[in-house]
C-alpha cells in the first residue's frame, strides 16, 4: 500500500543540537502507528517538525505527505493538506473564544479546499454533536481557548478540534499525559471514532497505557533520534515489561 506519510533520512536540530538523526518511517492510509520512546529521544521534536514549528531546523532528509513535499509548506498549508498535530501542551489563547477559533479554523481550511464556509448555525450543529461524544459541556465553547482548562479538558479540546476539522492524518503528541483513566478512555474513544481506511495516525507516547485503548497497527521505538526497532502491537507490551533500558544499551 502506498504510504500516506513517508519520512526518509530525516535529520533535525534545535539550537544547532541535532535531535533527529535519520528517521525513516512510512505510514499508509488506514493505519495507526505508534512512536514510543523515553524522554529526550526526539518524539515531540518529530511531531513539531512535521507540523512546521519555527526553531526546528531540518538539516537533511525528506517528508512526503500525500505525494507532496511537506517540509516546503507553511504550517497552515500543512493543515490544509490534511495534517493535524494534537499538542502535548495545548496553547492558551486569552481573548480568543473557543467557538470562534474553531469556526475560523474550519472555514479557513474549507476555503483552501474550495468548499463553502459554514455559518454559525451550521457550525454549532456540527460541533455540538462532536462535543457530546467527547463528554464536553457546551460551556467550553464560550470560554477562551484552553484558558483555565484542566489538563484533561485541554486534551479533550484537542481531540474536539481534530473531530471537527477532520484531518486526513493525525499526529498525537503524548495525548495521554496528564489524563486520569476515565479521561483517557474518553479521549481514546474519540480518537478511535476517527479511525478509518482513508485516515492515517501517528501516536506518540511514552507509555504503553494509551495503546491499550488505541491499538496500533505498528509500533516504532525512537531512541537517541533514531528508530531502533519496529514491530506489531506486542512490541508495546514488551517495552512496558522490560522498559527502554535494554534497547538503550543496544543502541
Amino acid at each position: 500500500m502506498k504510504a500516506m506519510l513517508k519520512i526518509e533520512g530525516l535529520t533535525a536540530a534545535i539550537d544547532e543540537k541535532t535531535v533527529l538523526k535519520g528517521i525513516d518511517l512510512e505510514v499508509p492510509a488506514g493505519e495507526v502507528h505508534a512512536i514510543m520512546g523515553p524522554n529526550g529521544s526526539g518524539k515531540s521534536t518529530l511531531g513539531y517538525v512535521l507540523a512546521g514549528r519555527e526553531g526546528y531546523e531540518v538539516t537533511g532528509g525528506s517528508v512526503q505527505f500525500r505525494g507532496e513535499d511537506l517540509l516546503a509548506m507553511e504550517p497552515e498549508d500543512r493543515a490544509a493538506a490534511g495534517l493535524f498535530l494534537a499538542f502535548q501542551y495545548p496553547v492558551e489563547l486569552p481573548g480568543v473564544g473557543n467557538a470562534n477559533f474553531l469556526r475560523q479554523a474550519m472555514n479557513a481550511l474549507r476555503r483552501k479546499r474550495g468548499e463553502a464556509e459554514l455559518d454559525a448555525m451550521q457550525f454549532l450543529k456540527l460541533v455540538r454533536g462532536r462535543m457530546k461524544a467527547l463528554g464536553m459541556t457546551e460551556e467550553m465553547l464560550k470560554r477562551f481557548v484552553n484558558v483555565g482548562f484542566s489538563g484533561g479538558e485541554k486534551k479533550r479540546n484537542e481531540i474536539l478540534q481534530m473531530a471537527v476539522l477532520e484531518p486526513a492524518f493525525c499526529v498525537l503528541d503524548e495525548t495521554d499525559s496528564g489524563l486520569d483513566i476515565d479521561a483517557l478512555k474518553i479521549v481514546a474513544d474519540g480518537v478511535n471514532a476517527l479511525r478509518g481506511p482513508e485516515r492515517g495516525m501517528l501516536v506518540i507516547t511514552h507509555y504503553q497505557r494509551l495503546l491499550t485503548y488505541i491499538v496500533p497497527d505498528r509500533v516504532h521505538v525512537l531512541l537517541g533520534g533514531r528508530i531502533v526497532r519496529s514491530g506489531g502491537p506486542e512490541l508495546a507490551l514488551e517495552l512496558e515489561e522490560k522498559g527502554y533500558g535494554e534497547l538503550q544499551q543496544a543502541a
Partner: peptide, 10 residues
C-alpha cells in the same frame, strides 16, 4: 504557531 497549525493563514 498553534493557530497556523489549525489552518489559519498567518
Amino acid at each position: 504557531f498553534y493557530l497556523r497549525s489549525r489552518g489559519l493563514p498567518l
